[in-house]
């Protein structure tokens, strides 16, 4: 009985588990290929969130922490200054606290050619 329930639980976990992600849209958009490195990036959430970490990884190598110091409240739209690191793939990873006390996290990527 216990083993059967455990197996069912694992199957359910694998099929439905998903990290909280209330991110509605970004600029650049997820998966976008652009010709110029953006000066800023935007994240638009469906609900108010307080971002606590925003990391940019360039070409799977250089990782930098983006400045969130100007955003201290719970808001939906974030516009963050961005110092590009040249052409290549960028991965933006974010973490934050939702208004209901839940932690949220997610990521999006874009390419500069």
């Amino acid at each position: 009985m216990k083993r059967a329930i455990f197996t069912l639980l694992i199957l359910a976990w694998a099929s439905v588990a998903t990290a909280h992600s209330a991110l509605k849209s970004t600029t650049p958009a997820n998966g976008a290929v652009i010709s110029q490195t953006p000066n800023e990036i935007s994240l638009n959430f469906g609900k108010d969130i307080r971002l606590t970490r925003l990391m940019a990884t360039h070409a799977d190598e250089k990782k930098i922490k983006l400045d969130l110091s100007k955003h201290n409240g719970f808001i939906k739209h974030y516009l963050i200054p961005f110092d590009g690191m040249g052409v290549g793939d960028y991965l933006i990873e974010w973490r934050g606290l939702g208004g209901d006390g839940h932690t949220l996290n997610g990521a999006f990527s874009f390419t500069v050619e």
Binding site: I5, L8, L9, V16, A17, T18, H20, S21, A22
Partner: peptide, 22 residues
């Protein structure tokens, strides 16, 4: 008890890492 443990475990997943439908 075995079923209760499973229910509590799935509840922990529901309340921790799954979003409500928007």
């Amino acid at each position: 008890w075995a079923v209760i443990f499973a229910i509590l475990a799935i509840t922990a997943v529901l309340t921790s890492s799954l979003n409500l439908p928007m």
